[in-house]
Each structure stands twice: as structure tokens, then as C-alpha cells.
Simulated scan of single mutants.
Amino acid sequence: MNFPADLRYTAEHEWIKLVDGNVALVGITDYAQDQLGDVVFVEVNSVDQDLAANEVFGSVEAVKTVSDLFLPVAGKVVEVNESLNDNPDKVNTDPYGDGWIIKLELANPADLDGLMDATAYEKLVG
């Protein structure tokens, strides 16, 4: 399993990374994609919405199941990774790169401090 040190993690298996000011990328972890199996569809229905931390912002459908996606911190969903419409398997093959799911404008960047670092997340998933 891969747990990049420059990301923050949630107990619900989402990751977040600041990329530009207070805008961050959000996706699911390598562990999550492995547990789900082959991802066949990603749905995000929360663009331009202000959401609280832990609110559902979409879902990932895999061969085995459908799993809700939870926002790591409060903010506004400003963009969806449209390439996942035609290639949802990017979530499996590159979960921390081309498999990102949304761009989020953070309400308060300091909220990232309340999330797990890579060491803590690795301990969580064991």
C-alpha cells in the first residue's frame, strides 16, 4: 500500500492535498480503491455547493458495491475530475494522481491539521 507523506487522510479513506492557496484535491486512498475493487463509475453531485466536513459529496461504484464519498473538511466543491467519466479506473490505477475526484475550496485551511498524517493512516488500516 502507498501512503504519500504530503497528503492528509480521513478515517473514511479519503485523502486531501493543498495544491493552490486554499484549493485542494480530494480522492480516495490506495487502501480504499483496493477494498472496493474495480471502480466502474464515479458520481459527484455537489459542484458549487458549500458542504460541512464529513458530508457526502458523491459516490464511487465498484463491481462489488457503491460507497459514499465524505468531504474531509468543510468547503466548496469547485471542480470535478471529468476524465473519470470515461476512465473511472484511474481511481484504481492512480488514486493519488490522475484519479483525484474533486477540487475543493477550503473554508478554513487550518482544518487540515485535524486530519491524519500518513503514519497515523497507515496504523489505522494496519
Rank of each mutant, 00 (worst) to 15 (best):
V60A: 09
V40H: 07
L36T: 06
A5M: 02
A53F: 03
G58V: 03
N2V: 15
A53T: 12
F41Q: 03
D6A: 06
G97P: 05
V56C: 10
E12D: 14
G99P: 00
K17R: 15
V39L: 03
G97K: 00
L106D: 08
E122L: 07
T29Y: 15
Q49H: 10
N85Y: 10
W100N: 03
W15Q: 10
L112H: 06
Q49I: 02
D30Q: 11
E82K: 14
K64W: 10
P72D: 09
N81Q: 08
V42S: 04
G114C: 06
K17W: 05
D86W: 12
D89V: 15
D6L: 03
V42I: 05
L104R: 00
V91L: 05
S67Y: 13
G75S: 08
N22S: 13
D50F: 11
Q49W: 02
V63M: 12
D6H: 06
N2W: 08
K17H: 10
L124H: 10
V73N: 08
E61S: 06
L25M: 12
A24E: 11
L104S: 02
L36D: 05
V39C: 05
P88S: 04
F57E: 12
N54A: 14
D20M: 06
D30I: 07
Y121T: 11
K90P: 00
V60W: 00
S67A: 13
I16S: 02
E82L: 05
I16L: 01
Q49E: 15
V66T: 14
D50T: 12
P4A: 06
L115A: 08
T65C: 02
A11I: 08
P4Q: 04
N108M: 03
L36C: 05
D86C: 04
V26D: 07
N45F: 11
L112G: 05
T93Q: 14
